[in-house]
Design a binder for these strands. Structure first.
Length: 607
RNA sequence: GGUCUGGUAGCUCAGCUGGAUAGAGCAACGCCCUUCUAAGGCGAAGGUCAAGAGUUCGAAUCUCUUCCGGAUCACCA
């Protein structure tokens, strides 16, 4: 089985050593210790060795100095485990060197396993539904959405690699006051413009009218305030907002004219979104539309009211009293009967659990909505759904500009389509400047340039801890050197280039025939890095953190590049060594490719 | 104001459940292409881990206090 195979490779070393350590302290000092109490870590680069046992926890029982304790344990380990070739003790740290032979055997295992690091999904696997993207249909996607989409897609891939069945889902917020604003503005000021008549992408055109609405709305507020209204009053009685609200009500009452306008403008937006998703490389297994779930939500709210979980006020609005949970009161239905965001989320959740045997439901939504999901969870629980409390809100941080938050009103929003296009163009220019693709066909160039441009953008976003806010500086653009996507892609391309030449020369590197050769520290360290891949995937899944994958690949690539620089591969005279380096290189390339795929990033064969 | 969250090099970020002299990249400086792709490698430089106290063999990491940021608490989504 796949899982066990991976375990033999990575877990093996640490557990066997841990077992021997526990035997050592028991034999030497009569100390009984749990396996997980033993602190085994990777040896720091400046010291000799591969794995380090922290000795401090044992010195008390040993009644000896940390140095001496380390020496004794080290000697015991070496005697009882042939994998340990040497050891040294510095302060309270016992550094163990693992035999080269072990690393070479391990490399062969890794190399033979095309799914190295992944856990196979079986019929028995549990199902995780992951919601991400969830756009409103009144404006185009921006940089914030990009982070959401990349995280959602990547996390889905990572969970699949951890053996989960994954259903990627998207709830399209296709109804509500926001879209009515765009519709109204288009109706009033749009002169029947269409994507065809203007040449604009549909989502951008609809977004334009959302801005238009806001502009006139602001003007009305200013006028009302000039007449003596307070700002609060003005916002409530401005004619445009009243009309938009009337439109929302008409929509919920199935007014044919409003519905037709809605269908048309949403159609424009979907066509636009589809293009953006495709360009970004994200997709969904199941799409829900708020317009198809909000009624379910409404009836759930009404059921809750009947059950006394919720209550109705005199004005007809329905509320949940959450003061008992330390929260406030929450509106669930407006006094005019129309539903709010929370209403549809209740309906959507219920429908999803009806549609799929969900074991874990994950919402990829920004941390600005932490409160919303806290409330949602409680409301579903109050409605009697046993899974209500188990919803996972994967809360990620905002993307900010150097000046702070992006504001659509001030035109500082970084548009998703523009940004992707820019990155691709930058990649094109860089390739041309460097003359990298001179021998490629136009079609190849197009493919590579897109890979690199999008790779730089995706990696830039995914390498950051998802929980944290991050800063994007549009003026500085995104680098192609250093800790970047293109740097990793480039390394992959270089390896592939060497492998192609090896194949041309007829060199067999299907496996390492001789595992008794002598290799350098740098080389065995690279193998050690490769062995860590499965553990990284597992941790990334547990933590919901693509950044862990990104950081790991970067470390690997950085290390490989040093090796590539310092050692010759094809010109190596010793065939066994040459074969080893090719096998090592191919394994590295494979892990780079697999790892980047978990981030939704493609790597080229040449660049 | 309540709740949540963050503060690490000039800038952008790593630093796993506490472990050795806190690491990368960018920018700036100096090297390395007659050698498998220089989108690369090497070197030097850059730090009061916001401040203070505590917990202990050991704290960027855990606890408390203070300072400074951000989010949220809507008949918005």
């Amino acid at each position: 089985m796949q899982l066990d195979h991976n375990k033999t490779i990575i877990m093996n070393l640490e557990t066997t050593i841990g077992t021997v350590v526990s035997k050592a302290v028991e034999t030497l000092y009569g100390l009984n210790i749990e396996l997980n109490q033993i602190q085994l870590q990777k040896t720091k680069r400046e010291f000799e060795g591969n794995l380090t046992v922290v000795i401090f926890p044992f010195v008390k029982a040993a009644r000896k100095s940390p140095e001496q304790t380390g020496q004794e344990i080290g000697a015991f380990l070496q005697q009882h485990n042939p994998v340990i070739s040497a050891f040294n003790v510095i302060k309270g740290f016992l550094n163990l060197s693992i035999s080269k032979h072990y690393w070479l055997e391990t490399l062969n295992e890794i190399h033979a396993n095309t799914d190295f690091g992944k856990t196979r999904v079986t019929d028995d696997s549990e199902l995780m539904m992951i919601e991400y993207s969830s756009p409103n249909t009144n404006k185009p996607l921006h940089l914030g959405h990009i982070r959401n989409n990349l995280l959602g897609f990547s996390i889905s891939e990572i969970q699949k690699a951890n053996g989960w069945k994954v259903v990627k889902t998207n709830i399209v917020n296709d109804r509500g006051i926001h879209i009515c604003k765009s519709m109204l503005a288009w109706k009033l000021f749009g002169n029947s413009e269409t994507p065809e008549s203007t040449g604009m992408k549909g989502d951008h055109l609809v977004g334009k009218y959302y801005v238009t609405f806001d502009k006139y709305f602001k003007a009305e507020i200013a006028a009302l305030m000039a007449e003596g209204s307070s700002e609060e009053e003005a916002k409530k009685k401005a004619p445009l907002i009243l009309q938009a609200q009337a439109m929302l009500l008409a929509w919920e009452n199935n007014d044919p004219e409003v519905r037709q306008l809605w269908e048309m403008m949403n159609g424009w937006v979907y066509a636009g979104f589809e293009k953006t998703y495709k360009e970004l490389g994200v997709d969904f297994d199941k799409i829900y539309y708020e317009s198809e779930t909000y009624l379910e939500g409404k009836s759930e709210v009404e059921r809750g009211e009947a059950n006394k979980a919720f209550y109705r006020r005199e004005d007809g609005s329905v509320w949940a009293d959450l003061t008992g949970d330390g929260l406030d009161e929450k509106l669930l239905l407006r006094s005019d009967g129309t539903s709010v965001y929370m209403t549809q989320d209740i309906g959507t959740a219920k429908l999803r659990y009806n549609d799929y045997p969900i074991n874990k439901m994950v919402y990829v939504v920004g941390n600005e909505q932490n409160y919303h999901f806290q409330v949602l969870s409680i409301l579903l629980d109050k409605l009697g759904f046993e899974w209500g409390k188990s919803l996972v809100h994967f809360s990620y941080g905002m993307v900010e500009l150097p000046e702070g938050k992006m504001k659509s009103r001030e035109g500082t929003v970084v548009d998703a389509d523009d940004l992707m296009e820019e990155m691709i163009e930058t990649a094109r220019e860089t390739s041309q400047d460097l003359g990298k693709l001179d021998n490629c066909t136009p079609q190849e160039i197009e493919t590579i340039v897109r890979m690199v441009g999008l790779g730089s953008l995706k990696y830039f976003i995914l390498k950051v801890d998802p929980r944290k806010n991050m800063t994007f500086n549009p003026k500085e653009s995104i680098d192609f050197n250093g800790n970047t996507g293109p740097f990793i892609q480039y390394t992959h391309a270089r390896i592939k280039s060497v492998l192609r030449k090896a194949t041309e020369q007829g060199i067999d590197y299907s496996k390492l025939a001789n595992t008794k050769i002598t290799i350098s520290e740098k080389e065995s360290y690279l193998v050690q890095l490769l062995t860590e891949f499965p553990a990284v995937i597992r941790l990334a899944g547990e933590e919901f953190s693509p950044a862990l994958i990104a950081n790991y690949i970067y470390d690997l690539v950085k290390e490989y590049n040093q090796f590539y620089h310092d050692f010759t591969i094809l010109k190596e005279e010793d065939f066994d060594i040459k074969q080893f380096r090719l096998v090592l290189s191919e394994s590295a390339a494979s892990i780079i490719k697999t790892g980047m795929a978990l981030l939704g990033i493609d790597v080229p064969e040449r660049m």
